[in-house]
Nucleic acid binder design. Structure first.
Length: 872
RNA sequence: GCGGGCGUGGUGGAAUGGUAGACACACAGGACUUAAAAUCCUGAGAGGGUAUCCUCGUGCGGGUUCGAGCCCCGCCGCCCGCACCA
């Protein structure tokens, strides 16, 4: 065999073309075989793929190719999350249309993805910005509107002043817009909302069934939904009424502490607060102060508990003749519960801080276990743990749970303003999903506003409501709203003048159902329910953990909404979820403190140390910390350059090796070099094997010698282990196993020229298996080797190698011998050697005899086939 | 503050309660070569003896066990998520 190096630059495009021509990865909805749907989170077409994409799609591709080899009908599609603000910003900067920019980017990125050799069914490609896609989203909207899953209401919303649009709660991170990073302001606007909160309980329950999701993500969603069980209580106002209200409605999770109540606090945004402020300048000023603090966000942690007495009192509901003062307090949120609380300072830290500041009574009503009622006091720390209720009239002596039940019965029976004074209630932190965005580059909301008929949905026959092409971004704000004619229509009901809704949908709507569209991308309706129900839920979904709440929660809601409107039959979109880690790289800084890209660096090693200098100027460069690849720190590596230099297989292989997939992986030049060397090593091994076979072709195989059997065992074991590792997404371990198999085969090939035919047969068999194991990870190299080995067809179409269970069993085992838990030797015995025989051998060992020094062992632990421990 | 995760050689990391450090990267030595690259071989947790023998060793301190990186209790450190949620 010639010493020719494997040339990925030549072979990779070749095999990509072959797969394309053979339609190797096109999946059919009519294929009767078992289905497997693997999906990676589809990319936003920003212009170029980055290493995070390479990692993500390499993992998904291994899963897809593996299950294909396992004989399944695999669906592995790709699309584009193509609406979004960057396109509008680019349009402004480049004086082009957002669609032009987006479609160019899609073209460029598609070429990049193709160069990776992914086993993708490109016939199902979708882009959310095309009417072919979003018309169906509009149809879904109309169905959801009819099913009362959507509402339009005026409410306080998060306004991003930089992106000039509204954001959903989930899209505000630390008080800042998730994309712009600008501090979010509060505005009162009329908006479209998906009623996700109607599904709060169901979304929570559903998490229990998602056993193939990371526990971490389930927990984050659980916390986000934020269920709390408690009671709603009415407190009657006393005295002459200065207000329209006669009572105050509060929510509490601790009705058992009602006897310890010492004040009522209203949110600054409470309706009653507003009413009182009209005639109370001090209160007006206080409310304004709260709002200022509120929008400044953060630092809330240290913000002092502050309040202002309103002059109002309520009757204490359980202590006859007692009253409680009503305050407005800065820490009470209007968005949670009823916007009003009762304060029980002894058992809530926040209430205690407030009570100390305003000198309000602190009455303990929960007695910690084993503490004497006479000596128990609360000073600076509220007691929030369990105990027995005391100081509490008819509740005294009860447990907390029993007291809660008693209070519920007691207040349930009493009437205030004609209604029950108290009722059990469950509250959720989850708010409805506001989807109106004041932007052009999004899916138009298919609704018109008619003065006569009101706000009504566009009839489905008039879909799609298409974005106008002739738009200008000269002015800030919503280009759709500024368009001279687009929004003016005649009402389809009365024929009168009407206007279109000019808000577009949040782009997270687009990604909330694309996985369903892939199952029938050309259907005339949003889904083909038959296809969707056969493919969904997605068997394995792979993406970044940053979508733990946003995209994954929305998609779970949307699937339920699609079920309610008859488009799919299941609740959950993703059966298995895997969240992969980020791709990181060292950072480099020049003496001037500027970030320097890795491509400008020359690294030198000297013994243990490393240093860097600039490749051109030779200036010393400081090696900084390892960070997520980002443009700002210039520590990015361009996939295109890696593919051009080393080939796609090398990049894929490196992304799968070393680090466990859920953890961050550090991109290093030496790591890539290593991956590339391994590629050549495989190619040499194949070449040598072919050569060996050629020279010994005439010899017939009689039977395997022990060396040959040993080699076969290594190969079978590798297939067995790697199958399990791929199924468990432990790619780094699969890679290590492949290395081991390769090492064993290379060793054999090195001495096989003079070996018996049986060993050559075992070698050939092992190499073929190796190539098949390699195929999901380095598919181009594998095809090249497969062909070189003279195998017919494509390795991509070859069934996964079988495992002979007999090959997984060893007939001899090495048993380590410990003395007092420390390893002192080992014995090699036939598998299944009885305890008595092991004992005999162990006790006759020289080391053991020496250490026993004539005494019998105190204890002898023998686990057959595993280990022996001699206790002295 | 609440919740979750992690801590193993120079580095990334392996290890159903059973030989800690698989596999890889980096490093050192050697072979081949005029030389380099490539390739192949060898070495390596630390310390000592300096053949194949001993001691220590998975963040720290305890515990359970014949046996603990793994299980339990208490700390320390780092990372992530949520955060005035009544």
């Amino acid at each position: 065999m010639s010493a020719e190096r494997y040339n990925p630059r030549e072979m990779e495009p070749h095999w990509q073309k072959v797969w394309d021509q053979n339609q190797s990865f096109v999946s059919s909805n009519d294929d009767p075989r078992e289905r497997y749907y693997v999906l990676e989170m589809f990319p936003y077409p920003s212009g170029r793929i980055h290493m995070g994409h390479v990692r993500n799609y390499s993992m998904g591709d291994v899963v897809a190719r593996y299950h294909r080899a396992r004989g399944k009908n695999v669906l592995h599609p790709m699309g584009w999350d193509a609406f979004g603000l960057p396109a509008e910003n680019a349009a402004i900067e480049r004086k082009t249309h957002p669609g032009t920019w987006t479609r160019q980017n899609i073209g460029a990125m598609k070429a990049q993805l193709k160069s990776m050799g992914l086993a993708i069914d490109w016939t199902r490609e979708i882009a959310t910005c095309e009417p072919e896609y979003y018309q169906h989203q509009q149809a879904l909207f109309i169905d959801m509107l009819a099913a009362d899953l959507i509402t339009r209401k005026k409410s306080k919303v998060n306004w991003d002043p930089v992106d000039m649009t509204v954001l959903a709660n989930e899209q505000v991170i630390d008080g800042k817009g998730w994309r712009s990073g600008a501090p979010v302001e509060q505005r009162e606007l009329t908006q479209w909302f998906f009623k996700i909160s109607d599904y709060a309980e169901d979304l929570l329950d559903g998490l229990d069934g998602l056993t193939e999701w990371p526990e971490k993500v389930r927990l984050m969603q659980r916390n986000w939904i934020g269920k709390s069980e408690g009671m709603r209580l009415l407190f009657e106002l006393t005295g002459a009424q200065q207000t329209s209200a006669t009572s105050i409605d509060v929510f509490t999770t601790r009705p058992d502490t009602i006897f310890g109540a010492s004040f009522i606090a209203l949110s600054p945004d409470h309706q009653l607060t507003g009413e009182l402020a009209l005639n109370n300048p001090a209160l007006t000023a206080f409310v304004a102060e709260c709002h200022q603090l509120g929008t400044a966000t953060e630092a809330l942690e240290k913000a002092e508990k502050k309040g202002l007495f309103t002059g109002l009192h309520v009757k204490h509901p359980v202590i006859e003749g007692a009253t409680l003062p009503v305050y407005v307090a800065n820490f009470v949120l209007m968005e949670y519960g009823t916007g009003a609380i009762f304060g029980c300072p002894a058992h809530d830290q926040r209430d205690l801080d407030f009570a100390r500041k305003y000198d309000l009574p602190v009455v303990p009503v929960v007695l910690p276990p084993g503490v004497d009622a006479d000596t128990f006091t609360v000073t600076n720390d509220a007691y929030v743990d369990g105990g027995t209720i005391f100081n509490s009239g008819f509740l005294t002596g009860l447990t907390i749970d029993a007291a809660k039940q008693q209070v519920a019965e007691y207040f349930g029976a009493r009437r205030v303003d004609g209604q029950a004074q108290g009722k059990v209630e469950v509250n959720y932190r989850l708010r409805d999903w506001g989807i109106s965005r004041q932007r052009y580059w999004g899916c138009p909301i298919p609704v018109i506003h008619c003065e006569v008929c009101g706000t009504i949905a566009v009839p489905k026959k008039d879909l799609p409501v298409v974005l106008p092409e002739d738009v200008s971004f000269d002015r800030p704000g919503n280009a759709l709203d500024h368009h001279p004619t687009w929004k003016h229509v005649n009402c389809h009901q009365c024929g009168g003048a009407a206007t279109r809704e000019t808000d577009t949908m949040d782009t997270f709507v687009d990604s909330s159902w694309y996985f369903a569209r892939f199952t029938a991308p050309n259907a005339k309706t949003p889904t083909d329910p038959k296809a969707a129900n056969e493919w969904l839920p997605v068997d394995q979904y792979i993406g970044g953990v940053e979508h733990a709440i946003l995209h994954l929660l929305y998609s779970r809601f949307f699937t339920r909404a699609m079920k309610a409107t008859g488009h799919v039959a299941m609740n959950e979109p993703f059966k298995g979820l895997f969240t992969q880690g980020m791709v990181t790289h060292e950072t480099y800084k020049s003496a001037e403190g500027d970030w320097v890209p890795p491509t400008d660096i020359v690294l030198e090693t000297f013994g243990e140390g490393r240093r860097a200098k600039h490749f051109k100027t030779g200036q010393p460069i400081t090696i900084g910390s390892v960070e997520k690849m980002s443009k700002s720190k210039k520590n990015v590596v361009d996939p295109d350059e890696i593919v051009a230099t080393y080939g796609a297989d090398t990049a894929r292989w490196f992304m799968l090796s070393d680090s466990p997939p859920e953890r961050d992986v550090q991109w290093t030049e030496s790591g890539v070099e290593g991956a590339s060397r391994f590629q050549q090593r495989i190619w040499r091994l194949v070449g040598e094997t072919i050569e060996i076979v050629k020279q010994s072709a005439a010899i017939a195989v009689v039977s395997d010698d022990s060396e040959a059997v040993a080699l076969r065992k290594v190969a079978h074991r590798a297939v067995h282990q790697i199958s399990g590792d791929i199924e468990g997404l432990r790619f780094n371990r699969a890679v290590a196993q492949i290395y081991e198999l390769t090492n064993a085969l290379v060793r054999t090939a090195g001495i096989a020229a003079a070996a018996p035919a049986s060993r050559i047969a075992a070698l050939t068999d092992g190499v073929e298996r190796l190539i098949q194991l390699l195929a999901p990870m380095m598919p181009h190299l594998a095809e090249t080797c497969w062909q070189a080995l003279g195998k017919s067809g494509l390795v991509a179409d070859a069934p996964w190698p079988s495992v002979d269970p007999a090959m997984l069993v060893d007939d001899e085992v090495i048993i380590p011998i410990q003395v007092n838990g420390k390893r002192r030797g080992e014995i090699t015995v036939p598998k299944g050697t009885p305890v008595a025989e092991i004992e005999r051998q162990v006790l006759s060992m020289e080391v053991i005899a020496r250490m026993l020094d004539g005494n019998p062992p105190k204890k002898l632990v023998i686990v057959p086939d595993r280990i022996v421990n001699v206790v002295i």
